[in-house]
Design a protein around this nucleic acid. Structure first.
Length: 896
RNA sequence: AGGCGCGUAGCUCAGGGGUAGAGCACUACCUUGACACGGUAGGGGUCUGGGGUUCAAAUCCCCACGCGCCUACCA
């Protein structure tokens, strides 16, 4: 049998995915158990323009781990994949492509443009789905969805019509966030606030009568051209007499009133605010309250309008600002300019400064929907956020302060708003043009040109992707889904909206749990971003270290942010290699053996201590991993598995069983040992499979006796694969404290002897005699039973076990549990003085610890108030330390 | 401006009222028939600082400092 010494991840990665997919292993239909419990996840649909980044890789890993785990536990499992049409992004990609051909979107026209986007989608979109296959994600590709699919579009129209008919969707002329670059309106969530150093300008406006004036402070002087009032706080003594007066707005000579409004903070600036209802959200509100005129001085391209006056007409908003300031200075009306840091709104996508503009748009009223979501959280504690702190509060606080959502967008790519207008301006909202015509009683209809915010369709994803509004079997079976796994950046954009829509249209929450992943930062602690060019490409990491190693690293991230470090992936690459070589050893010594679960039963004959111990470790590991995954503690699960496989299985079990397993002569004992080793390995591979699907499958397929009979009963009809075996169950009777304790004593003994070897610089090739003295009979029995293993692992020429050590004076010694002593006779090598000092130091350390413990025990309040269990534990420790000290003293005495 | 989180070994991070942990890095020895992407044995920490609660605090509470993140209509 030829097995390379090094694991080649790339090869294993090519060997299995296609077969899994082709054989339908990812589809819930593979499960033939009619009573199987269900488990479902819908993927956060990546943008059709997107390519795999670390955030995806992280989320996908966690989703795949939990999905593969549940599948192996016999759940009818669905992980539903799909993509988002990503309105603006996709439109920009195709527009850019057209530009290279020298064609503009408008030259092409809407219909042709949309056709072109579909063509792009077919040919270049969805790169990410290929990349996801590399990740090994066990999604059911046969159910893949796209948010612009006809059935999902129908769901969007259905929802729109329902919400419109209930009055929750309305069209209105209001102040909105406008991106002058993208030429579309944006919701509050698509706007980011950026702190910026700027200036605060103090402008003086003269009163119409009497030569008085009032000074306002502003960061945007150019908007003064559209001022239609100045507001002061009604309780502000300074301005009380001026309320109701009229000012003459400089540069435009418009008469504007001074109004009183509670919004104004007397402490800020001059306590007087210029009011520009057409260009500032707060001023807009003041304008509504005081019935002020809205003078539009900035247009949708952020240029000054004709209403700004001939001098300013056509100027860019920034040039206009400079000019206004200049003019004020000339007129002596610029009181002062001070440095001022404020936050500015920018388009999240293109970073252009947002221009608040009055515009006719479609809005979704959120209050009732929001109340239902809050009620669900309050009464049923759903969704359950993990970690609950802080995300439950983040979620509920945001909902509490929710405002109406601007859902229309001035784009061509997206779900066109299902509203039509008659020639007399009547609005018809319908599921289709035919329905609209029927409703209107005329064919002369023009459809609204806008499309819906991409998130409008995303929020329906958990049920639209399962076929809603049709009543489908998938909805019956898999809705609500089990868990949503996502980054924290879309809790508002997506998670909260899915909850509201799920409640509204399905009458149930869309998912039970929400697991929020951490963020992967670069090595400097910066967020990875395209503009900073500091992103790490997961595909490169896959190439370098393998998918399984990368997945293990990602699974251990958890819910806090971490800095990326290749070294950690490298250590998991080494772990994969360790697994490979442990299997290599097992396979090289597998003749005559076959996987046999019965060889791991408590009743199986010929169980040695190390066998009972590894069964205990195996079952404790299954228990701990199951518990960890149950609480989405991926990190803990990885730690547990890593420790079990490397430390327990490789370092100790393989070494202890080696003599039997690798014996030259065939014997029933050898076959039993080989079978047991093989079967433990097979169980270990199953435990690891959800995390490391490729290497585990690659190895499992080669194990003697691996086959269909090992599959979970629910998958009996499937082809043979580790991914459909049963996840190891916990057999509590195999978790064996005695075996663990005894094994620990053996391990300690071996470590002490090795330590002596190392300290005394004895070559490992040189055999040494080992003398053990243990007053405890039970301990002697344990050492005796494992004499051969001890001899081999410490390379002893002989091991003698007695009640009292009879080691010669010239020996290196060490004290063990229960006051046992181990000695290695080293005539001529012992420096008695040095040895005495070493032992004395050890004794002092123990004495110091004993003193600390005794002081604690001497405290009556401790004995009185601490739990009895703790007190007993402490006493036991003191006893053990006392025994060791006594033995040490004896040993030192013998050296005199 | 408010809210939240973090500060543990040289580095990246777990843990979390009762004996301070892992990986990497470091030191010494070892190519022994699974694996040098390995083995064995080690060194290394006042758990940011200061108060408090408790029999017991790295862990809970308060304050300070430092670093992040999120929310917001102060011109």
């Amino acid at each position: 049998m030829e097995i390379p010494k090094q694991y080649d991840p790339q090869q294993a990665e090519q060997n299995h995915y296609e077969r899994w997919e082709k054989q339908g292993c990812f589809a819930p239909e593979i499960n033939h158990d009619e009573n199987a419990p269900t488990f479902s996840i819908v993927i956060p649909p990546p943008n059709v323009t997107g390519s795999l980044h670390m955030g995806h890789a992280l989320q996908h890993t966690m989703m795949d781990v939990i999905t593969r785990y549940k599948r192996m536990c016999g759940y009818r499992t669905l992980w539903l994949p799909g993509m988002d049409h990503a309105g603006i992004s996709t439109q920009l990609v195709v527009t850019r492509e057209l530009k290279k051909e020298g064609v503009s979107r408008h030259e092409l026209g809407r219909e042709k443009f949309v056709e072109r986007v579909w063509k792009w989608k077919r040919e270049s979109g969805g790169q990410i789905t290929k990349q996801m296959r590399r990740e090994g994600v066990s999604v059911d590709w046969s159910r893949e969805k796209f948010t612009m699919d006809e059935d999902l579009s129908a769901a969007v129209r259905e929802v729109f019509v329902c919400l419109y008919e209930e009055g929750k969707i309305y069209r209105g002329n209001r102040i909105v966030n406008w991106c002058p670059n993208d030429q579309t309106v944006l919701s509050d969530l698509e706007v980011e606030k950026v702190a910026q150093d700027g200036k605060l300008y103090y402008l003086r406006y003269p009163t119409k009568n009497g030569g008085g004036s009032i000074t306002v402070a502003t960061t945007r002087p150019e908007t003064m051209l559209g001022d239609t009032a100045v507001a002061v706080n009604p309780n502000d003594e300074r301005y009380r007499d001026l309320v109701g007066e009229t000012l003459v707005l400089p540069l435009v000579a418009r008469s504007i009133p001074i109004v009183a409004d509670d919004f104004v903070d007397p402490q800020f600036g001059t306590g007087a605010v210029k009011v520009t209802p057409a260009h500032d959200p707060n001023d807009y509100d003041i304008g509504v309250r005081h019935n002020l005129e809205r003078v539009v001085v900035i247009d949708s391209h952020a240029k000054m309008t004709e209403a700004a006056g001939a001098e300013f007409f056509g100027l860019d908003r920034n040039k206009a600002r400079a000019k206004v300031v200049e003019k004020f200075e000339e007129l002596g009306l610029l009181e002062k300019v001070v440095d001022y840091e404020f936050s500015i709104s920018k388009c999240e996508r293109c970073k252009t400064v947002i221009e608040p503009l009055i515009s006719t748009q479609w809005f979704l009223r959120m209050d009732e929907l929001r109340d239902e979501a809050l009620k669900l959280l309050e009464q049923k504690k759903k969704p359950q956020f993990v970690p609950e702190v802080p995300y439950e509060k983040v979620y509920s606080n945001w909902l509490e302060n929710l405002r109406d959502w601007t859902i229309s967008r001035q784009l061509w790519w997206g779900h066109q708003i299902p509203a039509w207008y008659t020639s007399d301006g009547e609005t018809i909202v319908a599921r289709s043009e035919e329905e609209a015509k029927a409703k209107a009683g005329t064919d002369q209809l023009v459809q609204d040109q806008d499309v819906l915010d991409t998130w409008f369709s995303s929020q329906l994803w958990p049920f639209s992707a399962m076929g809603w509004p049709e009543k489908t079997k998938d909805l019956d079976t898999f809705y609500p889904t089990s868990v949503l796994m996502t980054g924290r950046d879309i809790i508002f954009l997506w998670v909260s909206r899915m909850v509201m829509m799920g409640l509204k249209f399905m009458g149930r929450e869309p998912f039970a749990d929400v697991f929020v992943t951490g963020t992967i930062l670069d090595a400097q602690g910066q967020r990875m971003s395209k503009t900073k060019m500091n992103g790490i490409d997961p595909l490169e990491v896959f190439d370098k270290y393998g998918v399984d190693a990368t997945r293990l690293k990602l699974a251990s991230v958890g819910s806090t942010d971490i800095r990326w470090n290749d070294k950690q992936v490298e250590s998991y690459r080494n772990f994969a290699n360790k697994i490979w070589n442990a299997a290599r050893f097992t396979l090289l010594n597998s003749e005559g053996a076959t996987i046999d679960p019965e060889s791991l039963d408590a009743t199986s004959p010929g169980l040695a201590l190390h066998d009972r111990w590894i069964l205990s470790r195996l079952n404790a590991t299954a228990r701990d991993v199951r518990a960890a995954l149950g609480g989405y503690e991926f990190h803990a699960a990885v730690q547990t598995l890593y420790h079990f496989f490397w430390d327990d299985f490789c370092d100790w079990y393989i070494e202890l069983t080696k003599a039997e397993v690798a014996a030259q002569e065939a014997s029933p004992e050898r076959t039993t040992a080989r079978t047991r080793l093989l079967t433990v390995l097979e169980q270990a591979l199953r435990l690891l499979h959800p995390f490391m699907p490729y290497i585990t499958e690659e190895l499992w397929q080669q194990l003697p006796g691996a086959g269909k009979h090992l599959l979970h009963p629910a998958y009996r009809e499937a082809e043979s694969t580790i991914m459909l075996t049963a996840y190891p169950e916990v057999k509590p009777d195999l978790i064996n404290d005695t075996a663990e304790w005894e094994m620990q004593a053996v391990i300690d003994l071996i470590s002490r002897v090795r330590n002596i070897r190392s300290e005394m610089n004895i070559k490992s090739s040189e055999p040494i005699p080992v003398l053990i003295g243990s007053p405890d009979e039970k301990l002697r029995a344990v050492f005796s039973a494992n004499q051969n293993q001890i001899t081999r692992l410490v390379r002893a020429s002989e091991v003698s076990i007695m009640a009292k050590s009879e080691a010669p004076r010239a020996s290196a010694r060490s004290v063990l549990v229960g006051g046992a002593e181990v000695a290695v006779p080293l005539a001529g090598l012992i420096d008695f003085e040095a040895e005495r000092q070493r032992l004395n130091k050890e004794k002092e350390k123990l004495a110091a610890e004993a003193a600390k413990l005794e002081a604690q025990l001497a405290n009556p309040q401790f004995v009185e108030r601490a739990p009895a269990e703790k007190v007993n534990e402490l006493r036991a420790r003191i006893t053990d330390i006392a025994q060791r000290i006594a033995q040490l003293e004896q040993t030192i005495e013998n050296l005199q």
